[in-house]
Write a protein that binds this DNA or RNA. Structure first.
Lengths: 128, 128
DNA sequence: CCGCAGTTGAAAAGTATTTTCGATTAGAGT
DNA sequence: ACTCTAATCGAAAATACTTTTCAACTGCGG
């Protein structure tokens, strides 16, 4: 599982693997594109400030992506690569794995790509 | 110019084209991926609350996209389609026009695509 | 040019996020 | 295993951000 590798990365960067950080990590792994409140619910034993700081830390080491799906910020583990379909009508969010990105055609540049986010907006089957 | 078409869309949806809304529209057109503060600087005559409401309105009719480029929310006109390269090292944001998206391969689904956002993270030439 | 539904802005309320700082703790070195 | 210390934690306070309220104002259809 990838959680181990995140812990390793954390240690490798000189950060301690505290129980609070592990709790946030587990909370993140238990859901997708969660808001701060949802993460908080999943690890109520961790202080609010620490959750903020931990999410910052995880973003910094590239373990977490922050998204904007229309409402406030949402967070998810960067490891399970997928993208989002957001229905502008009912607000439903679904994921799809298949990455329709042709990274080759950006390859010519001097920019070293490490990650990307892609959100697709439209109307879901139910709303049409 | 596309600003006209946004005004038309606004009227078509039953919204009035007030001077405040036009000012926000012009502010948006004068820059790219701006924060609320930057927009506000460009139309200081418009009240803060009205800017929030206008951005909501524009998002609703699809004239404006809201982005998360790492710091807080940012806004830009949806009309000039482009994507973002964000350097995780220095924070610089640059745009590229060429859309590397193969929308065909999502076409099979019952989801009607109207828009999308794509952000690419990495390290820029200067930081490498 | 009248009237009113839609719109505006100032202030207040409500949320969200960051800073501060004393207490606590993971993990390196022994 | 034990100590030590820099890193981390959490509660409260400060700050920043966003939404609600409501009385006054205005674009635009008739």
């Amino acid at each position: 599982m990838g959680l181990e590798s995140i812990v390793g990365k954390m240690r490798g960067c000189g950060y301690k693997a505290t129980p609070q950080r592990l709790a946030v990590l587990r909370a993140l792994a238990a859901g997708r594109h969660q808001s701060l409140g949802e993460i908080r619910t999943r690890c109520p034993e961790v202080g609010l400030v620490t959750i903020y700081r931990t999410l910052d830390l995880f973003s910094e080491i590239g373990a977490v992506r922050r998204l904007d799906l229309g409402d406030g910020p949402r967070y998810e583990l960067a490891e399970d690569h997928h993208h989002h379909l957001i229905c502008e009508s009912c607000g439903a969010v679904s994921e799809f794995e298949r990455c329709p990105l042709d990274l080759g055609c950006i390859g010519g540049m001097e920019f070293e790509i490490t990650a990307h986010t892609l959100e697709i907006y439209g109307r879901c089957a139910g709303c049409r």
